[in-house]
C-alpha cells in the first residue's frame, strides 16, 4: 500500500445506523439535525421477480420499483469510524430484498408519530424479525406529546418490553444525539451480555 500523508484519516471504517419510520414522520429532519453534510439522496432499483407479493393491486409495475433513501454522515475520528445515518425507504415491502440495508448496521432508530402509530409497525416487525437492535423515538411535533413512553411502548406491542422509547424533537440536535446515545447504550449492554469474558 502507498504511504499517505495523514494515516489517521485513512483508517476510519464506515458503520451505519438506520433511521426507520413511516412517510412524513421526520426521518430526514432527524438526519439533518446531526449530519455534518446536507442530507443526500440515493436511489436503487429493486426487482421483485420470483418474490411472493401478496397484494399486486395498485402496483403499476409489479416486477420492479425504485427506492430512495436520504442519508447523512458523522465523522467520529477518535473512534476511528465514519457513521452514516441512512433513512430507510418508505416501501417497506422491498426492504427484505435489500441485503445491503442491514449488512454492517449497528442498529436502528424507529421514529414514530403517535398520531399514526400504524405507519411504524412494518419497521418494528422487520427489525424484530432480523434481530437488529433498535430504539423507538416518538417525534413530538410542535413540542406536544399526548402519550407517555409506557403507553407508546404498549401500543406498539414491542416484543422486548425493555426496548427504550424516547420522546424527541427530530429538529433538535441535542435530542437526536440523545437518541443515538440511547441506542449505543443498548448495543453496549447487549454486547457486554453476550461477551462477558472480554470485559
Amino acid at each position: 500500500m502507498p504511504e499517505y500523508d495523514d494515516p489517521a484519516a485513512q483508517e476510519e471504517s464506515p458503520v451505519k445506523i438506520l433511521i426507520a419510520g413511516g412517510f412524513g414522520v421526520g426521518k430526514t429532519t432527524l438526519v439533518e439535525a446531526v449530519s455534518e453534510i446536507q442530507p443526500l439522496r440515493t436511489e436503487e432499483r429493486l426487482t421483485a421477480a420470483g418474490v411472493g407479493v401478496d397484494d399486486l393491486a395498485g402496483i403499476e409495475s409489479k416486477t420492479a420499483t425504485t427506492v430512495a433513501m436520504d442519508f447523512g454522515r458523522i465523522t467520529l475520528r477518535d473512534a476511528g469510524v465514519v457513521l452514516y445515518l441512512f433513512g430507510t425507504p418508505g416501501q417497506e415491502r422491498f426492504w427484505f430484498m435489500w441485503d445491503d440495508l442491514l449488512a454492517g448496521a449497528l442498529g436502528a432508530i424507529v421514529l414514530v408519530d403517535t398520531r399514526r402509530l400504524d405507519r411504524s409497525f412494518a419497521a418494528i416487525d422487520f427489525f424484530e424479525n432480523r434481530g437488529l437492535p433498535f430504539i423507538v423515538g416518538a417525534n413530538c411535533f410542535h413540542g406536544e406529546q399526548l402519550y407517555t413512553a409506557e403507553e407508546i411502548a404498549a401500543a406498539l406491542h414491542l416484543s422486548d418490553p425493555a426496548t427504550p422509547v424516547l420522546m424527541l424533537d427530530a429538529r433538535s440536535r441535542e435530542d437526536v444525539r440523545g437518541a443515538l446515545l440511547a441506542l449505543l447504550d443498548l448495543l453496549i449492554s447487549r454486547a457486554g451480555a453476550n461477551a462477558p469474558a472480554t470485559a
Binding site: 471504517s13 449488512a103 449497528l106 453496549i188 447487549r190 453476550n194
Partner: peptide
C-alpha cells in the same frame, strides 16, 4: 474500505468509543 463486519460491530470497546465520540458532537 468495507463496512465493519458483525463481529466487529458488536465489539464492546468499539461501541464505547463510538458512544464517547457521539457524546461530544
Amino acid at each position: 474500505r468495507p463496512p465493519l463486519e458483525a463481529a466487529e460491530t458488536s465489539n464492546v470497546n468499539l461501541l464505547m468509543r463510538i458512544r464517547d465520540s457521539l457524546a461530544r458532537i
